[in-house]
Design a binder for these strands. Structure first.
Lengths: 117, 117
DNA sequence: ACTATATATGAACAACTATTCATATGAATG
DNA sequence: CATTCATATGAATAGTTGTTCATATATAGT
């Protein structure tokens, strides 16, 4: 890290620094996006947005090994984005948060507009 | 990849498969989130959401080398999330999309609610 | 032209991540 | 209680990514 930057617009930097959100929330937001930023996890989220599914069904649906799906579900669980319900030896997963759907909807809208424009 | 999964709920899988968004948009959405999923890029986006900034000011503000910031700006440019304006040898960056702010606002709202609950 | 400054970029490296493989856990069933 | 089935998990690996360092490009000033 260098600190020898010639500050071109000191006032601007000061102004923006004052208005900037705190470091910690920004960090957490990007951690959330990092979880979304994998196509396997995105596909899992899309599927669970439609309906509750067990691990085996998910791996069939996504054409992936049970292990790979299970590993990703763990990440989603740790991020509190999905919740699980156990029925015998079958574990059913579903979305644990209402915001997720909204965020994905906006992202989809963005992608779709990009395609047109 | 294994295809030897014992399908537990065939009808459910079939139903969800039918309702699932297409592969390609999901892939693009997760690519978008991947760009957001780095704290340096998130900080850049937050800063530019407040005000247009040049590279040098950004690196001062974020306490990072000019090179590191420049590399991340390239990624944001390629994703069409920021646009640049050249004035002499100074290059000013600003957000290139209205959706970005909304998506970040929702994500922040989510993070803040997580902190309370 | 020469120098200083603002930004961009290529190569290298370290850190991280997603999948696979092997195996463990835990619950139902005969 | 041994076996089968659904899921979870640890280790290993291959691929990706962010930063640094060195350097290139481009523009302004002298």
């Amino acid at each position: 890290m260098e600190f020898e930057n010639t500050v071109i617009h000191e006032e601007v930097v000061a102004r923006v620094k004052e208005k900037m959100p705190q470091e910690e929330p920004i960090y957490e937001v990007s951690e959330l996006f990092k979880v979304f930023g994998d196509s396997t996890r995105s596909r899992i989220i899309c599927a669970l947005h439609i309906e509750e599914l067990c691990v085996n069904d998910l791996s069939t649906l996504l054409n992936m090994t049970q292990s790979a799906v299970s590993h990703q579900l763990r990440i989603l669980r740790q991020a509190r984005l999905v919740k699980s319900r156990k029925d015998g030896r079958v574990v059913y997963y579903s979305l644990d948060d209402d915001h997720i759907g909204e965020i994905f909807s906006l992202a989809f809208a963005h992608i779709m507009e990009e395609r047109e424009g």
